[in-house]
Write a protein that binds this DNA or RNA. Sequence first.
RNA 1: CGGAAUGUGGCUCAGUUUGGUAGAGCGCUGCGUUCGGGACGCAGAGGCCGCAAGUUCGAAUCUUGUCAUUCCGACCA
Length: 480
Amino acid sequence: MAKDKKLVEAITSRDEDFAQWYTDVVREAKLCDYSGVKGCINYLPNGYAIWEKIQENLDRRFKETGVENVYLPLLIPESLLQKEKDHIEGFAPEVAWVTHGGQEKLTERMCIRPTSEVMFCDIWSRTVQSYRDLPKVWNQWCSVMRWEKSTRPFLRGREFLWQEGHTIHATPEEAEARTLTMLNVYRDFYEEELAIPLVVGRKTDSEKFAGARDTYTIEALMHDGQALQSATSHFFGEKFADAFDIKFTDKNNELSSVYETSWGLATRTIGAIIMVHGDDDGLILPPRIAPVQTRVIPVAQHKDGVLDKANELLNGLKEAGFRAKIDDSDKSPGWKFSEQEMLGIPTRIEMGPKDIEKGQVVIVRRDTREKISVPIDAVTDKFAEILEDIQKNLFDKAKKFLDDHTDTAVTLDEMNEKIQAKRGFIKAMWCGEASCEDMVKDQTGGVTSRCISEVQEQLSDVCVCCGEKAKYMVYWGKSY
RNA sequence: CGGAAUGUGGCUCAGUUUGGUAGAGCGCUGCGUUCGGGACGCAGAGGCCGCAAGUUCGAAUCUUGUCAUUCCGACCA
């Protein structure tokens, strides 16, 4: 079998039509289904299972840093939303309103939360009094609603699932430290668990979250060369505290403002996994996040003992702590192979009469398609090794892609030329003026600043756009 | 929200130009034969053609509206 032959016609080739490929993979891997309400998808078991793995892993990481989970209401009274000016201005165009309860018109309309800063601030303004009440390091897992104009499964929905963490602190230093701690949690999670390499930094003023003083971001590069803002962590300073009058009495019996942060990661992450690792045969899930790490596929399962042996193997894997399933349906083996690949399950283990005779199984890697014969009594050790190798290989491949699609530019013409030739990140110097960002966007057909890199290089002394003195090295690119 | 396209069984689509009893392949169900890269035979089930008005003796087909999906922009996580 030629290695590059496309096995499944149902999936459009990735390089031929990336957008269609994405839609096909989402459908064929049965991750979600359209609901009939624009921008609201049905999360199917395969898709939701990925979200559950994300939740499980992130939640553990959060709690290791002292986070406590809470749940606050879905509805926000309009008067509460109005309290912080920049915040409401940022979100007003995209909130959905509840105006009636049953037949009765409400005296005050309420919005369905687009994010919950104001709800957290509201409760804190009523409950925080002393420095002994600080810090509050809270998080909630919930869905939010933003009335988006154009929507795509996982990448941009009107309703989407996420976690939103909100914290308040006695000092700005402590709050800033928390902002960076969470940024690093996201970074580690993306790189270690999802095998997705990143560009990390701070947003420019024009890209900042509504009401934030600083917004930190992790940016991943999709296979089509477009950036995806994958998680953000915000430092608000005292803005919300002042708007909501959250004050506490410090050790010296003086009244003082709190300093606030918030940070979030959404189901968009599932889109990132698809677009970073997937190939023409479907999804590829990194072993650490894959809800199912292997499918045991019995070959000629009607023959004596095959199914029993396969189940024995399955149980052995489960006992060793792996997430394994068996496909003992009456489909043909070829069909089962294709399905396992479309679903992105990182490995399959084939076991047929010939294997049993030789006392072995065949482990097949999803990422390289390599077939590895392994003696049955060595399966669990070898399997663990293979999973680790797949995890590493996926990261290395994605890192190579990121490096290959990151270039530098000193002038606007050079940036334009390079981004037209090959989509990806462009590193370039910037003076700090929003007008230059606008100019770059106009001149390049939509390239925006992704972040002020946390690792600075002096590529040039002048801004890529205006030629004035440069302040920062910025990652630029087209984004989702 | 602007521009373009598309809605016909679970999926992919034909049929619409020229109005006249709803089609195919795949999938699904049952039985049998198969089984190391989407197997085969036979027999079946399944659709008031996105929705709503209108024109007409008669509408999947024509008109208007509306909703959804896809792509491209603008906006945004």
